[in-house]
Write a protein that binds this DNA or RNA. Structure first.
Length: 370
RNA sequence: GGGUUCGUAGCCUAGCCUGGUAGGGCGAUGGUCUCCAAAACCAUCGAUCGUCGGUUCAAAUCCGAUCGGGCCCA
């Protein structure tokens, strides 16, 4: 694979992603400075993930905001395919969704697609994906959502509510559409072929516009949803996309729950975090200390720095100092890693506490079939 | 229901025709190097060859059955 080749699909992400190219390829819109200003005007602040381009692309976010300004509220929808334990990359769109919910005071639906992971992962049983759905839900709740405005949908549990909506959608998507969108072949099981209609269902669960914060790799599902929405008399869902969170081992892939050593899980202990970062985090440092002092490091490819930028250092000034010190050679890779380890571990200490509490809160969050 | 094809370590795969208890690649682990990581170079671990039975001195290899996956036809 050459340097500018990359693959982004809902099931596979590979290569060094050029996000400007991806925007063209997917046909989305870049989040412009005007749009950022508009968000700032309405919410009173601009989230660091927006400022830093962690959320970099959208579909019709402008329309959602225009409607909001006219007094028409929207609702939020995001989710997670429960194929394994939660890692810190998953928390990015969830954190952002929480911010959106607070700023706009809107409802949020969180879909756990246990059926889809059962269909798409040959080795997982339905029991496995259900178990992971529960585990993932704890991490979601631990971020501090309001149970009055936040409901967790589990596909196999809430099918009664989802199915009539999914049926509306399914009738409007034909095999050619899904084949073209997802590259399905004759080997693809029919669960997968139907599945996108189920992922669409929460878009229409309330009769309001919907905004979906999500990893850009999940965009194809909603491209189809957007196509058929007008055909069933609904508004197209609006999307806001975040970049892929790199694996510890470097650019050229997203953090994956199946890659143990390249991934920080929310349940990792402080010593595991320390070991993983020190032993595996790809660095932008120079081959030895003399050269590093002389030439400086490259924060743009340094995974530790990227994690600080994406999630763990919201303070722009502090981040800027780290960037400059690393670039000038003042800060060594080992020292940068120490900063990140401290940040992650203090985050996880609180998160893990909240995660324990979530076990008693989960019932308040689960969606009741209507 | 019929046909066909495949099933070898975490993954991909050679070997099967012409029987003599497995070879490679990726990955993983450890080491050297480095402030770390990567790269590079060493080294190591890892497979009762889907299962059961038969033939044979000897079966991943031949035969039968069975389970599982894929495709085509009905």
């Amino acid at each position: 694979m050459s340097a500018d080749d990359f693959i982004v699909t809902p099931w596979h992400v590979e290569g060094d992603i050029d996000y400007d190219k991806l925007i063209k390829q997917f046909g989305t819109e870049k989040i412009s400075s005007e749009l950022l200003e508009k968000i700032k005007k309405i919410t009173g602040e601009d989230h660091f993930m927006l400022r830093r381009g962690i959320f970099f692309s959208h579909r019709e976010l402008t329309r959602i905001l225009d409607e909001y300004e006219k007094g028409n509220k929207f609702f939020l929808y995001t989710g997670r395919g429960p194929s394994g334990h939660t890692h810190i990359g998953h928390l990015v769109p969830w954190m952002f969704a929480k911010w959106l919910q607070e700023k706009f005071d809107v409802n949020l639906y969180f879909q756990l697609t246990d059926d889809e992971k059962f269909y798409s992962k040959p080795n997982l049983t339905l029991e496995d994906t259900k178990k992971f759905a529960y585990e993932n839900a704890l991490d979601f709740i631990a971020l501090g959502f309001d149970p009055e405005k936040t409901k967790i949908i589990i596909n196999t549990k809430n099918i009664q509510t989802l199915y009539p909506i999914a049926a509306q959608v399914a009738k409007k998507i034909n095999f050619s559409n899904t084949k073209a969108t997802f590259g399905f072949t004759n080997e693809t099981n029919i669960g997968m072929i139907f599945y996108t209609s189920l992922q669409s269902a929460p878009c229409f669960i309330e009769d309001k516009p919907v905004l979906i914060p999500l990893g850009v790799d999940q965009d194809p599902h909603f491209r189809l949803t957007r196509d058929i929405a007008p055909k069933i008399g609904k508004q197209k869902p609006a999307l806001v996309h975040n970049i892929m969170i790199p694996s510890l081992e470097g650019p050229g892939g997203k953090m994956s729950a199946s890659d143990e050593k390249g991934t920080i899980f929310t349940t990792d202990s402080p010593s595991e975090v320390k070991k993983k970062i020190n032993k595996h985090a790809f660095s932008g440092g120079q081959p030895d200390i003399e050269q590093h002092r002389k030439l400086g490091g490259n924060p743009d490819i340094d995974v530790s720095y990227q994690y600080l930028r994406i999630f763990f250092e919201p303070d722009d000034d502090k981040l800027k100092t780290i960037y400059e010190d690393y670039k000038s050679g003042k800060l060594l890779s080992g020292e940068l890693k120490a900063i990140l380890i401290e940040k992650i571990n203090s985050f996880l200490a609180i998160h893990q506490e909240n995660r324990e509490k979530a076990k008693n809160q989960i019932d308040q969050f689960l969606f009741e079939n209507k």
